[in-house]
Design a protein around this nucleic acid. Structure first.
Lengths: 205, 205
DNA sequence: GTATATACAAACAAGAATGTATGTAAAATG
DNA sequence: CATTTTACATACATTCTTGTTTGTATATAC
């Protein structure tokens, strides 16, 4: 076989990452072998071991590549500067988040791997904390948004912004679970926008 | 080695089930070997293969033994006959549900296995549907409770019982995730009763 | 243009893990 | 009391995976 140029090598690296996502999604992380990934990527295990030390490192690389950009996008929308009603900002952010998942096949696969096809033990236990971290950021920012709504008087009086943020966070995480666990069998996808609207409407003045 | 009596055999079967839960929880389902389970149960793989055909069957047996009784308990509380305010019934049911998880070590381990240490592929994909089913039952019953509250006038007017049930379901499922994923590190456990109260208060008249 | 490092493929060695087959002593059974 | 199951332990064969090692053609650096 011929030696590849640097750009070609980078492309096979990407192919391996893509193949890993596919196979992880299909067989579960623990049960996929590097051989399967290599085959799906059209290379041999040699190439995989050249680019990644082992399966764990490959998994982490695959995950970061997809989730990091996603996280950035979310926060920029949530705290957009002075909206007329911050509650609209929250509503739109949530809607956009779920739209992202439903429309982007890659993101959806990644989430399904994270929630349904990965065992968080040993090396992977660290991933859990990395998953929780953006959650905490989200929680904090949503609370800020609710607080702004309180100031502007669009939040129904008597509602505590912190408590509302906690409730919304649970709501979001639950929706995630539903959406992923239902595997698109029930009509979950279509109900989501309505559910988000109802959830926010519950706390409008 | 001596042959055991029937009751003794039943006890080793139970020991294997207990050991399986422990080891599944510690190492993740895919990564635990029957050898590890056997060792933890104080027997050999021979005993495991005698009582169960393979790891999958053992997993299913372990799961059913714990989850079935739990499901029964939930529904009986949720639709308790004519409470003054059905919303109180929902609140109490949720509180009790989470208390169950926090207090019963076995239940907690089982849920952590299901949510964080199991890959839902191939044989295990069927488990997902079994998990979803009691969820649907819960959803339906909560909706009934909300409808009763509407009739009694304790549900804030203008709120749709069905939409409220969906919101509550997401809320519960999200709390599950938080509770299990946080691994008891943050002060989640203590906040839960308050969160439940807030969630229900949002929809009181 | 030569030397060297690169980007893999191919071969190798070793250790699990699984399923099955065999052995066996004691409990059931009659 | 003789026979037959039962409830395992032990041994075996086979298959998978993994990690490493070796080989090599060719970009790339100088």
């Amino acid at each position: 076989m011929v030696r590849k140029t640097k750009v070609e090598a980078e492309r096979t690296r990407q192919q391996i990452l893509d193949a890993a996502r596919q196979v992880f999604h299909e067989r579960g992380v623990s049960r996929t072998t590097l051989e399967q990934i290599a085959k799906a990527a059209g290379v041999t295990r040699g190439a995989v071991y050249w680019h990644f030390a082992n399966k764990t490192e490959l998994f982490f690389a695959m995950r970061e590549q997809i989730s990091l950009p996603l996280i950035d996008r979310i926060h920029s929308t949530l705290l957009a500067e002075d909206l007329a009603d911050p509650l609209d900002g929250i509503e739109q952010t949530l809607a956009e988040l779920f739209r992202n998942i439903q429309e982007c096949h890659v993101v959806q696969q990644m989430f399904e791997i994270m929630f349904l096809r990965c065992e968080y033990v040993d090396d992977f236990a660290a991933v859990l904390e990395e998953i929780n971290k953006p959650g905490f950021d989200f929680l904090r920012n949503v609370e800020i948004a609710y607080r702004r709504a309180e100031t502007k008087g669009t939040l129904r009086s008597g509602l505590d912004p912190h408590a509302m943020a906690l409730d919304s966070w649970s709501f979001v995480r639950g929706m995630f679970q539903h959406l992923l666990a239902s595997q698109g069998k029930d009509g979950w996808s279509e109900r989501i926008p309505t559910m988000i609207r109802v959830h926010i409407a519950l706390r409008r003045a």
